[in-house]
Amino acid sequence: MDYPVKILIVEDEMIIAANISLQLSKLGYKVTGIVSWGEEVLPHVKQNKPDIVLLDVQLKGKLDGIETARVMQNEFDIPIIYLTANADESNFNRAKTTNPFAFISKPFKKLDLQRAIELTVNRLECSLDSGSSATLANNSPFILSDCIFVRHREKMVKVAIQDILYIEAERNYCRIYSKTKEYLLVITLKGLDEKLPDKYFLRIHRSFVVNISHIDEIATSYVVIARKAIPLSKSLKEELLKRLQTI
């Protein structure tokens, strides 16, 4: 990755969390924050979009780390590295069902943390390598007239066209925002735009394609969809207005 990898730390022991944060910063990673409660994870992820989540299995509160992972995975496909001081068989088997990228047993050394993250980043880079034809073939969306099948957590899932709000470019991949979930696709926005049905979708900015049926407001330099202000390029505004008149 050609940008600092963003990591969220979910750990209720603040001394341990602060130490991890310091180590990650020294290794060149960007810490998006330290969260102590499972209930706080989803709002943080929505706002900060970390690339990796370091997640303590034994969290205080209603949600432990494994339940927190399940809640997060209902909406986001973000790699998880578990931190645990209790690696018993029961917890391990529960944690396996969330498909973590790694386990780190407490107390751990700096090298343990470094290697687990480096291996995770390496797997991410391999999966996001746009130059790999095999990767693209396995992850490219399959588009029909009324739906898109996208790869999500090792399987293809159906996303109705009418449920897609907008799509945002993130370097050499893009993120679909639907009414209920987000999906990260290994394809450029340009590549996806060329496959999408013109009846519903229009590129209004170099980084955004929108489902025009979901536009709530049009301002001078942006549109609003589901309370999200999305930039609108001057050169593309006229085309958008024309399309809206023909609906």
Rank of each mutant, 00 (worst) to 15 (best):
41 V>A: 11
198 D>C: 07
101 F>V: 08
94 R>Y: 08
116 A>H: 00
95 A>F: 05
133 S>E: 12
2 D>M: 10
61 G>C: 07
135 T>V: 15
224 V>Q: 06
64 D>E: 08
199 K>E: 02
26 K>N: 14
79 P>W: 15
8 L>M: 14
136 L>S: 10
113 L>T: 05
1 M>F: 13
51 D>R: 01
124 L>R: 13
67 E>Q: 10
21 S>I: 08
159 V>G: 11
206 R>P: 03
52 I>A: 13
95 A>P: 01
144 L>F: 14
212 I>H: 04
42 L>N: 03
26 K>C: 09
152 H>A: 12
81 I>R: 04
8 L>I: 05
24 L>I: 06
18 A>I: 06
57 V>C: 07
163 D>S: 15
131 G>A: 00
129 D>F: 09
35 V>I: 15
145 S>R: 01
50 P>A: 13
95 A>I: 01
182 E>Q: 12
27 L>T: 07
49 K>P: 01
198 D>M: 00
152 H>T: 11
120 T>L: 11
238 E>H: 08
135 T>G: 08
53 V>K: 01
231 P>T: 09
30 K>M: 11
193 D>G: 14
242 K>G: 02
214 H>R: 03
108 F>G: 05
195 K>L: 15
26 K>L: 15
107 P>Y: 03
16 I>F: 09
159 V>M: 09
218 I>T: 10
135 T>C: 12
197 P>I: 06
80 I>M: 02
227 R>N: 09
197 P>R: 03
157 V>W: 02
39 E>D: 12
181 K>F: 00
168 E>A: 13
208 F>R: 03
60 K>D: 11
167 I>T: 02
104 I>S: 02
17 A>S: 12
68 T>N: 05
3 Y>T: 14
100 P>C: 05
27 L>G: 04
76 F>E: 09
61 G>F: 04
185 L>S: 02
94 R>N: 10
74 N>A: 12
216 D>P: 00
134 A>S: 10
46 K>P: 00
178 S>F: 05
86 N>A: 11
220 T>K: 11
164 I>G: 09
209 V>L: 13
59 L>V: 00
60 K>W: 05
118 E>F: 00
227 R>F: 00
184 L>T: 04
11 E>C: 05
177 Y>M: 03
148 I>N: 01
239 E>L: 06
190 K>D: 05
60 K>M: 13
11 E>H: 01
197 P>L: 02
23 Q>V: 09
130 S>P: 00
198 D>F: 04
210 V>M: 09
3 Y>E: 15
53 V>D: 02
178 S>R: 06
168 E>S: 12
130 S>L: 11
63 L>W: 13
121 V>K: 07
231 P>E: 10
206 R>E: 15
99 N>H: 14
239 E>A: 10
216 D>R: 03
178 S>L: 01
193 D>R: 04
202 L>Q: 07
29 Y>D: 07
47 Q>P: 00
128 L>K: 12
135 T>E: 14
237 K>L: 02
43 P>Y: 12
122 N>L: 12
80 I>R: 07
83 L>E: 03
115 R>M: 14
92 F>Y: 15
201 F>Y: 14
235 S>K: 10
208 F>Y: 15
73 Q>S: 08
3 Y>W: 08
92 F>L: 15
61 G>M: 10
150 V>Q: 02
77 D>L: 01
232 L>T: 04
210 V>P: 06
172 N>M: 07
202 L>K: 04
233 S>W: 07
52 I>L: 13
50 P>F: 14
171 R>L: 10
75 E>R: 01
36 S>G: 11
237 K>N: 03
189 L>G: 04
